[in-house]
Write a protein that binds this DNA or RNA. Structure first.
Length: 467
RNA sequence: GCGCCGGUAGCUCAAUUGGCAGAGCAUUUGACUCUUAAUCAACAGGUUCCGGGUUCAAGUCCCGGCCGGCGCACCA
């Protein structure tokens, strides 16, 4: 059968609900509208038929009468899921339901499959994620979470633009996967006869743009990490990275809390949220506490990057963490922090002053060369952002990469590889600069109140069917 | 990668100790001029995820595999 190529609609269901909220029972507005969407429910009653129409804005009832509606018999045989366009008057029925009293209608597309259960919708995770299109029209909450993700991305982008950051795009196909500690995906370019890695972070490229004179840049894009899959990890995810010349990590913390609080406010209209039943507030300012302070408080024992490595290792051992021989005091401190503090950090907080050993791209702390001017923000027990004063000394950067190479030789397959082109870029002069990375999916989870990252990704990575 | 749990009609779910594989909704047919998950009547709908095994008999028990959820590990 042939269906129309266009439908000229003049109203949305949700808008009609607010515009005609005043209409009394059995009152007719005298206004004709054209609406389109999917038939979600159908109730026929002899020479009457009621359908629930859903469009992107909400739902409205369609009211068809044999005496008034063209092709009434066909209308009464619509299937759940069919797309229709209708025209008719906005009325409220005797029973109080705002409706479009259908005079003319057209089938826009047939639904050949249906989900059947009007109450439970689709609950099977496998079906929901593999056929998200069905999930989205069967389950309004799925659509809401993805819509909120979209609003988060939009708000992030607009706030970065408003702060004079230039949006840029850097390569996803890289000869070296660097800028973070993660195992990469590999691929191959035939014409260039070369192996490439999908990027694990855009960090080094972005700083090269700062070297080139883009004083404020950001990139909002996909990164790929060949790691495990979990309710909080998808192999490809979206990251915001942002760099500002002349800022240090203190400036960047101030920007970060304003950005995140602003995004929450833009999307939800408030900075007060409830995540998985537990409230917290994104409102700035967030507390700043050093990693050593928090870890000492959790342990009931003063520790720092200067605590003898043997003592830190013993504390880890007590907690069942196996200590690798290549770990120095800095790595041990960071592990202790993750073990004792991370999950307890519910309200947004900045954890500052990370050891040099675990921060190969961050600038040394002005007061302690064993630390860096680095922060991570935490919320709901999870890392939300990561930022630092950027290391701009090419000699120190080379030494840091060489430390990483030693870790790699010691069997750490996530250690960074030395990037000669990046060191050369630093030799051209990187001004004092602060950088920020924010996991957008994680932020969207918080704002959409979702426990599983897949709920804020339209098509999460699944194992291909093999049957 | 490891552990636990799950997979039954298009969808949501039942099935007692191993004993004829069911219901609601959806689909099909019929009734019905204000329904709201409409209601009522009837018909139809199955490789119980896949492959082996035990048994007179397997959705159910055993072995292997596939996919998913959760936890651990890894990470953001």
């Amino acid at each position: 059968m042939t269906t129309p190529y266009t439908f000229d609609h003049t109203a949305y269901a949700g808008t009609l609900q607010t515009t005609y909220a005043h209409l009394a029972d059995a009152e007719e507005s005298g206004v004709d509208v054209r609406v389109a969407g999917r038939v979600m429910l159908l109730r026929t009653q002899g020479k009457l038929a009621f359908a629930t129409l859903r469009d992107s804005s909400g739902e409205i009832q369609l009211f068809a009468l044999a005496a008034r509606t063209e092709d009434f018999a066909e209308f009464a045989k619509l299937h759940l899921g069919d797309w229709v366009g209708v025209s008719g008057e906005v009325v409220r029925t005797k029973r109080g339901e705002l409706s479009v009293k259908v005079t003319r209608w057209v089938l826009l597309a047939q639904a050949q499959h249906n989900f059947g259960d009007k109450w439970a919708g689709i609950t099977d995770f496998d079906l929901r994620y593999r056929h998200r299109e069905a999930d989205l029209w069967a389950n309004p909450s799925s659509r809401q979470s993805l819509a909120r993700r979209s609003l988060v991305v939009r708000a992030v982008r607009e706030r970065c633009w408003a702060a004079d950051f230039t949006e840029v795009e850097t390569p996803m196909l890289n000869a070296i996967a660097t800028g973070a500690a993660a195992r990469p995906f590999t691929t191959f370019h035939n014409a260039l006869d070369s192996q490439f890695f999908l990027r694990i972070a855009p960090e080094l490229w972005l700083k090269r743009l700062v070297v080139g004179g883009f004083e404020r840049v950001f990139e909002l894009g996909r990164v790929f990490r060949n790691e495990g899959v979990s309710p909080r990890h998808n192999p490809e995810f979206t990251m915001l990275e942002l760099y500002a010349a002349y800022w240090n990590y203190t400036d960047m913390m101030a920007f970060t809390e304003e950005l995140v609080a602003g995004v929450a406010s833009d999307v939800l209209g408030t900075t007060d949220v409830t995540y998985q039943g537990r409230p917290f507030s994104f409102a700035a300012p967030w507390p700043r506490r050093t990693m050593a302070e928090l870890t000492s408080a959790a342990l009931g024992e003063d520790v720092s990057v200067h605590t003898p490595r043997e003592r830190l290792a013993a504390l880890l051992d007590e907690r069942g963490v196996s200590v690798h021989e290549s770990w120095g005091a800095g790595r041990c401190l960071a592990e202790l922090f993750e073990e004792t503090c991370e999950e307890t950090l519910w309200d947004p907080i900045f954890v500052t002053d990370f050891p040099v050993e675990v921060s190969p791209l961050a600038r040394r702390h002005q007061r302690d060369p064993e630390l860096t001017e680095r922060f991570e923000s935490y919320a709901a027990g999870r890392e939300l952002s990561n930022g630092f004063s950027e290391l701009n000394d090419p000699l120190d950067q080379r030494a840091r990469f060489e430390d990483q190479a030693r870790l790699s030789d010691a069997g750490d397959d996530e250690a960074m590889r030395i990037d000669e082109d990046y060191i050369r870029a630093l030799e051209w002069g990187l001004p004092p600069t602060a950088g920020l990375g924010v996991g957008i999916d994680r932020l969207a989870m918080l704002i959409a109140d979702e426990a599983n990252i897949r709920e804020v990704i339209a098509f999460p990575t699944l194992k291909p069917r093999r049957d």
